[in-house]
Amino acid sequence: MSTVAETGLRTEFAFELPVGYVDDDGQVHKHGTMRMARARDEIAPLRDPRVRDNEAYLTVLLLSRTTTQLGTVPSVTPAVIEGLFTPDLAFLQDLYRRINQEGHTRAAVVCPACRHDFSVDVAGGAAGES
């Protein structure tokens, strides 16, 4: 049996929010980490009455279960995800999709000026990181 380190499997991804979560003290938290989802992360919220009442709430629960760190916020709860600005929520939804459906955080883009194709790390990693 091999370990994650031995296989090079990457299961956690650093990110930087475009706006940032503002806590009750007014502190802005932009840097965080998200891990790959496990089957139970997608199954358990389906039993939650908030999801039964509003299917869109599934996103809040999925992101709160898989966002492992957000600045110095002690715990990323559904209330924290609910408090995100819309651009940050959209960013995390896209990051979740990339990590869990595509297995990476890179996106193919085209320069609008020169039409050159290249890829960027949407998680906000340093240049050259994969």
Rank of each mutant, 00 (worst) to 15 (best):
T33L: 13
L17E: 04
L63G: 00
T67Y: 02
Y96C: 02
P87L: 05
A123G: 14
T105Q: 03
A123D: 01
E129G: 08
A113G: 08
V80L: 05
A127V: 11
T66K: 00
G103I: 13
L58M: 07
I99W: 04
L61W: 05
E12F: 08
T66Y: 00
M36C: 15
P18M: 07
A126C: 14
K30S: 15
A113R: 10
S119R: 14
D94V: 04
R47Y: 13
P74L: 08
H29A: 08
L70I: 07
M34S: 03
R47E: 12
E16R: 12
Y21H: 09
L63F: 10
A127Q: 10
E82H: 14
L70P: 00
E82A: 09
E129I: 04
V73R: 00
T68A: 06
R97W: 12
P45A: 11
R40H: 15
I99R: 04
T72H: 08
V60Q: 03
A90I: 08
A113W: 03
V110E: 15
G124S: 12
Q93E: 15
V80P: 00
D121W: 01
C114R: 15
L46H: 09
Y57W: 10
P74N: 07
K30L: 13
I43V: 15
Q101T: 12
L89N: 04
L9F: 05
F91V: 02
T77K: 02
R65H: 12
V110G: 06
P49C: 07
A39I: 14
V120M: 09
E12Y: 11
G32S: 11
A56V: 13
Y21P: 01
L63Y: 06
S64L: 07
R47V: 05
E55D: 15
Y21E: 02
P49I: 05
E42H: 10
R10L: 14
R115K: 14
H116K: 14
A90G: 06
V109K: 04
P18R: 10
K30E: 09
T105E: 03
P78A: 02
L46M: 15
T33F: 11
A79R: 06
P112M: 04
V110C: 12
V110L: 14
G128C: 05
V120W: 01
F15H: 02
S75R: 10
Q27D: 14
V19H: 02
M36P: 02
G20T: 07
R50Q: 06
G32A: 09
V120G: 07
C111Q: 04
L9T: 09
D88S: 09
Y21D: 00
Y96D: 06
V109C: 03
A127T: 09
G103H: 13
Q101N: 13
Y96L: 05
E82Y: 07
P74I: 04
G32P: 01
A127Y: 08
D94H: 13
M34V: 05
V60C: 08
P78Y: 00
R106Y: 01
D88A: 11
G8W: 08
D117Q: 14
D48I: 03
P78R: 01
A90V: 13
A39N: 13
M36R: 14
A14K: 09
T33C: 07
H116R: 12
G71H: 03
T33E: 05
K30F: 02
D25P: 02
Q69D: 01
Y21N: 02
V120L: 14
I43Q: 15
L84Y: 06
H31W: 03
I81D: 01
F85H: 13
T67N: 03
V60R: 00
G8S: 10
V110I: 13
G83H: 08
G83C: 13
